[in-house]
C-alpha cells in the first residue's frame, strides 16, 4: 500500500507530465498553422488536450526538463557544441568517403552513461548518432553499444571519455 504522500507525489508528477505534453503539442500546432486566429487556437487546444490526457506517459522535449537558468545556459552551449560536432563529423566522413583507400576500422564498443532521465538518455543517444563516426546500436539501461567507424580504443572507460563525456557534461545539467 502506498502512503497518501506517495500517492499525492505520483498524481502531481502525472499532472505535470500531461501539462508538459499539452504545451508541446500546442506549440507544434501553432508553428504548423502559422497564425493566431481564434478558431485555429480552439481546435489546437481541444486536440492537444485530448491527446495529452490519452497519453500521460508520452515523452517530449520538455519532459523532465529542469527549468533553471543554469539549464538554459547549458542548453544553449549544448546546441553550440552539437552543431560544431555535426559539421566536424560530416567533414571527416566526406574525407573518408572520397579517399580511394577507404580508411576505416569499424567496431562496436560499449560505453556507460551517468544520465538517469529518459529524455536525457534519448538526447544522448541521438547526439552520439550525429557526431564523428559513432552510431548508437543498442541501449541497455546505463550501457550503450556504439558502432564506431574508427575504433580508437575498445576499453569501456576510454571509449566513454571519447564518445559520451562531451555531451554528458551539458545534458546532465539540462535533464539530469
Amino acid at each position: 500500500m502506498e502512503t497518501p504522500v506517495e500517492a499525492k507525489v505520483r498524481a502531481m508528477a502525472r499532472t505535470r507530465s500531461t501539462a508538459v505534453m499539452f504545451a508541446t503539442l500546442l506549440l507544434f500546432w501553432l508553428m504548423l498553422i502559422g497564425n493566431l486566429t481564434l478558431d485555429a487556437l480552439i481546435v489546437g487546444v481541444l486536440a492537444s488536450l485530448v491527446i495529452a490526457v490519452l497519453y500521460p506517459n508520452g515523452i517530449s522535449f520538455f519532459t523532465e526538463l529542469r527549468a533553471t537558468p543554469e539549464a538554459f545556459v547549458a542548453g544553449l552551449r549544448y546546441y553550440g557544441y552539437f552543431f560544431k560536432e555535426l559539421v566536424k563529423s560530416n567533414l571527416r566522413l566526406t574525407a573518408i568517403v572520397l579517399s580511394p583507400s577507404l580508411p576505416i576500422r569499424p567496431g562496436i564498443v560499449k560505453v556507460r552513461t551517468r544520465l538517469r532521465s529518459r529524455m536525457g538518455r534519448l538526447m544522448l543517444a541521438n547526439s552520439i548518432t550525429l557526431t564523428p563516426g559513432t552510431l548508437t546500436v543498442e541501449m541497455d539501461s546505463e550501457w550503450l553499444y556504439v558502432h564506431w567507424t574508427n575504433v580508437e580504443s575498445d576499453d569501456i572507460e576510454a571509449a566513454t571519455g571519447a564518445i559520451v563525456a562531451g555531451f554528458e557534461r551539458y545534458l546532465e545539467v539540462i535533464y539530469g
Binding site: 566522413l93 568517403v97 572520397l98 577507404l102 576505416i104 569499424p106 548518432t129 552510431l135 546500436v137 567507424t149
Partner: peptide, 21 residues
C-alpha cells in the same frame, strides 16, 4: 557525399553512418 558513401562503404552499419550524418 553521403550517397557516395552509401555505395562505397563495405557493410550495413558503415553505410548507415554515411547515410545518417
Amino acid at each position: 557525399f553521403g550517397a557516395i558513401g552509401l555505395v562505397r562503404m563495405p557493410d550495413a552499419y558503415n553505410r548507415l553512418q554515411a547515410g545518417t550524418k
